[in-house]
Design a binder for these strands. Structure first.
Lengths: 174, 174
DNA sequence: TATTCTATCTATAACGG
DNA sequence: TCCGTTATAGATAGAAT
């Protein structure tokens, strides 16, 4: 819905991502309210933006819905919490370590333990679309500098114009 | 949306109410999935139909989102015994997210938000010592292939020697 | 009761300020 | 960043099956 169709995958542009979040957040809350009213259902929605801001909607106190959830699902949220949290820490730590390895590989370090298949995948990651990152960075940097120069020039022009204006006024005042 | 506009109030006809619940439930779940993917957000939805049937969607384990909810909202859903575990998860998650950003930068993506200082640092990371990772990878790959060939040759030599040995023994036994 | 159809209504992507 | 607008994609009410 919108001027163009979009694919459901992470929006790479951070500004667009935030804008879309704000819009869709409201849409989701509206839908949640509507279904709870229309169909006499209990609905809770809890959302965290990337930045960690929380939004919640709950047609009845969340705590009650959770109690109900426990009863229905047979999952004892509180009791097994410790185990699940520990498991999650393990998982996230492991992910962390994998990410660090990936970073080393992208920098060309620690390649020895890689299988030929993995090396191929790594080469592809660097070739397909990404080309040489260094070149991309340099180009981006150049662009920034260029913009910087343009702004400086504009600045000079403006202050010159301003100076002329001042001079005119001063002349008039004499 | 539909053949006619409807007012947002309890649907009195019980059959319609259930049909509408089934349809809108799917719609809500779809929207929840979409926003979590598009905007990299954590989203949980818990719904109970009138009949008490539960449906849940959670982009990450519900338990964690509840822990997070508790922290953000200041509402105590249960004992805070495990706050340290939650804090640790948050910490490692945040680190993960930073690592993912670093990976994108190393691949030359998402450079726009970087300050000139950060760009310099990134350039240095790629230049100092690491050179062009792609070249390094290729070289490493070449070496592996070469080693592979050497091992093959060594293998051939060994099996030839072994064959000779066997022949000798066979001769002796006859 | 669940699914399918489709006319119609709603949400929202892209854009402009 | 946060509105408002508009064209278009998507959701769904009502009906049929």
């Amino acid at each position: 819905m919108g001027r163009g169709k979009i694919e459901i995958k992470r929006i790479e542009n951070s500004t667009n991502r935030q804008v879309t979040f704000a819009k869709r957040k409201n849409g989701l809350l509206k839908k949640a309210r509507e279904i709870s009213i229309l169909c006499d259902a209990d609905v809770s929605v809890v959302m965290f933006s990337e930045a960690g801001n929380m939004t919640e909607y709950s047609s009845s106190p969340l705590i009650e819905q959770l109690a109900r959830y426990q009863k229905e699902s047979g999952k004892t949220l509180w009791d097994v919490k410790h185990e699940r949290l520990s498991a999650e820490i393990d998982r996230v730590r492991k992910e962390n370590s994998n990410l660090q390895i990936e970073i080393r590989h992208l920098k060309g370090e620690d390649l020895k333990p890689l299988s030929p298949q993995e090396l191929h995948a790594l080469e592809n990651a660097l070739e397909d679309g990404y080309a040489c990152p260094r070149a991309k960075i340099k180009e981006h940097h150049r662009k920034l500098k260029k913009n910087g120069r343009l702004l400086e020039e504009e600045n000079k022009r403006l202050s010159f114009t301003y100076q002329q204006q001042q001079n005119k006024w001063n002349m008039g005042a004499m």
